[in-house]
Structures are given as structure tokens and as C-alpha cells.
Design a protein around this nucleic acid. Structure first.
Lengths: 182, 182
DNA sequence: CCTTAAGCGGGGTGGCACCCCGCTTCGTCG
DNA sequence: CGACGAAGCGGGGTGCCACCCCGCTTAAGG
């Protein structure tokens, strides 16, 4: 990639990061280009569609989540690590406007691609299988399910972190009262 | 309301119903107006904003859900009725493109208004309090939470009914294996 | 320094939400 | 039943958008 192209690419991602976190995933791509000091054609050449831009913007943050999953998998107790990680994902997704949209790219089967959602689900799979091994998670539950769930909650609550956290707790525990039988 | 105004209103809602269920909540309002045979100004006069139109489109379906909640509250076993009703809501919401968006109108506190979401949550409250009374639901869970959850799941899965149903089951039961002790 | 192609961006296209305002039609009342 | 005031209508305008075309610029290599 030519040096000027790389410079423009970086400027666009940086500006998009600011604007998306300020205004959400539906920012005007024109404005991103304007603030980045490039023509809109340049933006569209580098990023064919809004999703491609969002993927680039969140790539680093997602990478952080992946590292964190590996770290938790190695250090934490198998059952709790998954819950801790999902709450961290939830916080990330809820407080980063537009991330949920990026995670749900292609909406349905987010596997096989190298999209943010696919990579996140893959990282989660590690923790899920650990948790299954110690009987803390049903076999029918997949990491992809959980990522979709987190994303959906985040989409639904807007940016209300407290409610998002509460709904995730609810979904992980179920609606029934805690079984006091042990 | 003048007779012609009423006629236009009805035509717009009817056409919007078709187009939203075919193309989702993001239909072009211009196209709705075009197909309804009215000027776009007429549409915008009757419905100030996309959400107002969606509310009108789904009002009848929502009314059906409310009746169903009352019916289940009277006839069904308190614990199961809630689950049955939530699955019915889920099916409705997932198969009616755009309904989730309508239910999440104003996103955050959907109480107090007479929006679709508020009315649905109110109807659910009946079943929730029944279920709490028989110890099937934790006191900290509100009907509003559950409606937001259902809507979020629906948004996240696109139109995949089977997955939507599975995720709702998951969220209601929690991720842990079924307690075989009880 | 010169070539060449990768990359750029001004400006165009078609579509959108939303609004203004002169014209039409409805409902009412004499 | 006819006329009148107002409610309602919609063609057309504005400003914004995503996305693209194409002649010009400039980086990179010899």
C-alpha cells in the first residue's frame, strides 16, 4: 500500500473512531471523510460500506477482548471466567456506540468470516468449552449464542450500562429464583 | 377527523404494513406514500416520524398480544403462562420485521408512554406478578426487562425464528445445566 | 530525473426525510 | 341546496446522504 494511502486509511479510521463513539454507528460517512480531510471517494474506496469501516474502527478493541479471553482461560476458575468475560464484553459493547452493530455483521451465522463477531465468538468458545467441562454450562449453549445475546441486549438498551449489566445477569442466570438447594 | 383524512390514514397504515413486513422497519417513507397514492407531505402530517407510523402499523398486533396475556393470566398455570406468553411475543416480534424497533421506541424507559412497548410491558406485568407469587420468577425481574430482552434477541437474530426461540429459552433458563436435584 | 500506475477528490446521480404554500375538497349552516 | 371557511392535500423545494466517474496528482522504482 502506498504511503499516502496508508496515511489516509489511518486518518479515516481515527476520525471514524471519534465520531462513532460520539454519535453512534449511523454517522454520516461524508462527515467522516470531511473531518479526515479526504474526499468521500477515498473513504468509499478504502471501505466498501459502513460495516467495513466499523470493523476497522473496532478491530483493536476486539483484539483486546480476545487477549482478555485467553488470559482468563489460563488464570481464572473455568466456570466464573466465562461470566466475567461476558460481562466485560457486555460493558465494552454497551459503552462503545456502534460496536453491537459491528459484532452482528451479517446478523445470522457470524462464523467462518473474519468479522469482529466471528473472532469474538471464537475466543469465547475457549471459555465456553472450559465452563462446559466443569458442568457450569449446558452443552447446547454456544459462544456464538452468547455473543449474539450480549449484542442484542446492548442494542436493546441503548447505552444504559446498568440495565445492560442487569439484563445480562438475568439472561445468564435465568428468571427463576436461585435454587437454594445447593 | 375528516372522511378523506381518515381514508388516507388507513391507506397509509395498510401499505406500510405490507412494506414493513416485506422490507423491514427502514422502508422508505417516500415509497410508502407513493404506493398509498398520497403525497409525502400527507404521510408526514399524519405520522410525525417513522416511529409514529410503526406504532400505528403494529397497534392491532400488539392489541392481540395484550388480549392473549389476559387470557393466559386467567386460564393458565401462573408459572408456565408467562413463559408461554413470552414465547408468543418472541415469535410475533421475530417474524414481524420492524416490530422490535417499534417495541423499543425511546429505547430506555418505555414506561408511562402509551407506546407499543409500554402497553406490552404493562400486560406482561400481570403474568410476571402471578409467576412471582408462585415462586417461579425472582422479584428483581420486571416485565419491562423481559420485553426489552425479547426485543433485543429479535433485533440481534434478524429473522431467524428458530434461533430466536432458542436464545429466549436460554435467557429464561440461564446457561447452567438443569438442576437435576429438583 | 522520468515514467507509470496507484491513488486522489471535485463534482455528479439518484434517493431520502421533511417542509412550504397555493389549491381542492369536506362539512356545515344559512 | 348553495356558498363559505377551514381542514386537508400534494407538487415541488431544500438540504443531506451513499456511492461513483474520471481527469489530475504524486509516490515509488529504475
Amino acid at each position: 500500500m502506498r504511503a499516502d494511502a496508508q496515511r489516509n486509511y489511518d486518518r479515516i479510521v481515527s476520525v471514524a473512531d471519534d465520531l462513532v463513539s460520539r454519535d453512534g454507528a449511523e454517522v454520516s460517512l461524508e462527515e467522516v471523510a470531511r473531518r479526515a480531510g479526504v474526499g468521500s471517494a477515498t473513504l468509499h474506496r478504502h471501505f466498501p460500506g459502513r460495516l467495513a469501516l466499523l470493523e476497522a474502527v473496532f478491530r483493536d478493541r476486539i483484539a483486546g477482548l480476545l487477549d482478555r479471553a485467553r488470559e482468563l482461560a489460563e488464570t481464572g476458575p473455568p466456570g466464573d471466567s466465562l461470566v466475567v468475560w461476558l460481562h466485560e464484553v457486555n460493558t465494552y459493547v454497551t459503552t462503545s456506540r456502534g460496536l453491537a452493530a459491528a459484532l452482528l455483521a451479517h446478523g445470522e451465522h457470524l462464523a467462518e468470516d473474519d468479522t469482529c463477531g466471528a473472532k469474538t465468538a471464537a475466543a469465547g468458545e475457549l471459555l465456553v468449552s472450559q465452563a462446559k467441562a466443569v458442568g457450569r454450562v449446558r452443552p447446547s449453549v454456544s459462544a456464538e449464542d452468547l455473543i449474539v445475546l450480549v449484542s442484542g441486549i446492548s442494542l436493546a438498551v441503548g447505552g444504559d450500562s446498568e440495565r445492560s449489566r442487569r439484563l445480562l445477569d438475568l439472561a445468564l442466570a435465568g428468571i427463576a429464583p436461585a435454587a437454594t438447594s445447593g
